[in-house]
């Protein structure tokens, strides 16, 4: 396997040896040409190519549960981690990874975050799924019951009396909750 350059722009344009690319097609029909080491972080892709002997480099793998928007987010994360791995094969510098991850999720809305969690779950990227669910937990930790219902799209099926009783019982847990 040739060592490939993970960054998407201005990299190997003039290199004579072409790096291997994997073609992935999203639910809305866009085809992404992804560097092999990056694509192989997607467990579903890795097993697809490992288990099917008749697929070739020209095979376009369909990913019907992943939108183009989610795919951009997924690849940004996987490319950054491939870059860390390539530069520091032993251990990625913890601080640099933290800084990247913090900046990475700051730009994502709650809807985008949920969409990416679904995609990471479907594509079976355990590291990313673990990271994103941790981000979701941080976002709701100090929020109100109403905020969390809206966040997850959960219907309140308590009667008003039942809910009032529960809120009384857990009154101490409602102190210091965020305003929004």
């Amino acid at each position: 396997m040739s060592s490939s350059i993970a960054s998407s722009s201005s990299s190997s344009s003039s290199s004579s040896k072409k790096e291997k690319k994997i073609s992935l097609k999203t639910s809305d029909g866009e085809v992404f040409e992804v560097e092999e080491p990056v694509a192989m972080q997607l467990e579903i892709v890795r097993s697809f190519f490992a288990d099917n002997e008749d697929v070739t480099e020209q095979t376009v793998m369909p990913l019907p549960n992943v939108s183009t928007a989610a795919m951009h987010g997924i690849l940004e994360y996987c490319r950054a981690h491939e870059e860390f791995r390539r530069r520091m094969p032993e251990a990625a510098p913890e601080e640099e990874v933290r800084a990247f991850e913090a900046g990475y999720v700051d730009r994502k809305s709650n809807e985008e975050l949920k969409e990416m969690i679904l995609a990471a779950n479907y594509l079976n990227i355990s590291k990313l799924l673990d990271f994103l669910t941790g981000v979701a937990a941080k976002r709701i930790e100090n929020k109100s019951v109403e905020y969390v219902r809206a966040f997850f799209g959960v219907e309140n099926d308590f009667t008003p009396e039942e809910e009032a009783n529960l809120r009384r019982e857990y009154e101490w847990a409602f102190e210091g909750v965020d305003e929004d």
Partner: peptide, 9 residues
């Protein structure tokens, strides 16, 4: 948080 979120549903 868990105690509060018992009131979600």
């Amino acid at each position: 948080s868990l105690a509060r979120f018992k009131c979600v549903c």
